Simulated scan of single mutants.
Amino acid sequence: MSRVAVMGAGSWGTAFALVLSDAGNDVTLWARRPELAAAINAEHQNPDYFSGVALPPSLCAVSDPAEAMEGAELVVLGVPSQSLRPNLSHWPIPSDAIVVSLAKGIERGTGLRMSQVVAEAGGIDAERIAVVTGPNLAREIAERQPSASVVASTSEATAAALQQACHTPRFRAYTNTDVIGCELGGATKNVIALAVGMAIGLGFGANATASVITRGLAEITRLGQALGADPYTFSGLAGLGDLVATCSSPLSRNRTFGEELGRGRTVAEISASTRQVAEGVLSCASIQALAAAQEVEMPIVDAVAAVVGGELTPAELMTTLMSRSAKPERY
């Protein structure tokens, strides 16, 4: 059993806290709002995200970051990607703890992956940093449906320790040392899911969505290889698995956000109507900049960034993609 702090009581943070508790760890969940922490402790559920889903009685919630992390051997970062750096600036992370990122995004302004943000802003050595990625639809995991994910670290020992801490009969964890590929797959698939959602919102069928998913995987792989990732990562859970789940499920906030865009709502209107964060909306410009710096062609990412920036409509996005010049498939 490990002493674990999960920093963030949103949907994914709560679901992963449940997994860690089911695996036999002593888990404390940090909630930014004291009233939410009190509700979790009193009701043994998260009323804001998973009403009706029972949390283990042993899982406790607090609203003081220092209290949550006191004595923690494992600190899990469950806040959105763009708020990770400011939180790390004042969180007292224990000096010997393994630090785990759950966020799937690229930091705006710097183009850094989340493990890089943790290293830079938190002063954490790379061998103590890990990420969790793969097909991680939070509600299904909270409902204890069977799921497999990847725990990645440049240190095999760190990845193995995290694997042991979160492996349960319903949550199967695989290790990987390709942190670059795992993080790029997790971040970029959100942008592809926005495009798939727009296609669905516009009324298009399976041919269109399958085409976007497949060509999206090609874009992710091109960028990953340019940045030093192992191309085989993208055929696994952190690549294809995560992409399929995010693009196929109505539980995916990025796909759902894209659907609303396809139906004519604006980015501002959709964002104002939910407390959930669609990471693809926040990261698409950063991923586009990474691709441009590597001279990697990513037409789907470019088109999604143009829609998010108000330069294209979803209908124009589809026209733009379909009217590109003909090329060999392996171009």
Rank of each mutant, 00 (worst) to 15 (best):
Y174R: 14
A42W: 09
R108S: 14
F234S: 02
G197L: 13
A126G: 03
L194P: 05
P65M: 12
V6C: 13
C166N: 03
P146E: 01
R170S: 14
E219T: 12
Y174T: 10
F234D: 05
A66K: 08
V76F: 08
Q45T: 11
K327F: 08
T168P: 03
M322S: 12
Q294T: 10
G309A: 10
N41E: 07
D64A: 11
Q116M: 09
G205R: 06
A306R: 15
P86Q: 00
V150T: 13
E156K: 11
A138G: 06
A119N: 04
T214I: 07
A152E: 00
V212E: 02
Q276P: 04
G264M: 05
A306L: 09
L55T: 09
V99A: 00
V62Q: 02
S101W: 00
V62L: 04
G280M: 10
S83I: 14
P94H: 00
A42G: 14
G181Y: 03
R108F: 01
Q225K: 15
A278F: 02
P314I: 01
A103V: 06
L18P: 00
C284W: 02
V118G: 08
W12H: 01
E43M: 12
T177S: 13
V132Q: 08
A37Q: 07
V118Q: 11
A292Q: 15
A165H: 02
E311Q: 15
E269F: 04
E183K: 05
V244G: 09
C60N: 15
S81F: 02
A160M: 10
Q163E: 13
G310M: 04
A142S: 14
L321P: 13
A130E: 09
A293H: 14
A165G: 08
G262W: 00
N87T: 14
G13C: 05
I192E: 01
L55E: 05
A61F: 07
A315H: 06
P65Y: 09
E70Y: 07
G134P: 10
A326E: 14
T110P: 05
M7W: 04
L227C: 09
D230I: 01
T320D: 09
T320P: 01
E297N: 14
S58T: 15
T319R: 09
Q164Y: 01
R330Q: 14
S323A: 13
G309W: 03
P169G: 00
I192F: 01
A315Y: 00
L74K: 09
S63F: 04
F50W: 05
K327G: 05
A54S: 14
F171V: 05
G52M: 06
A315V: 07
L312M: 13
C284S: 15
V4A: 11
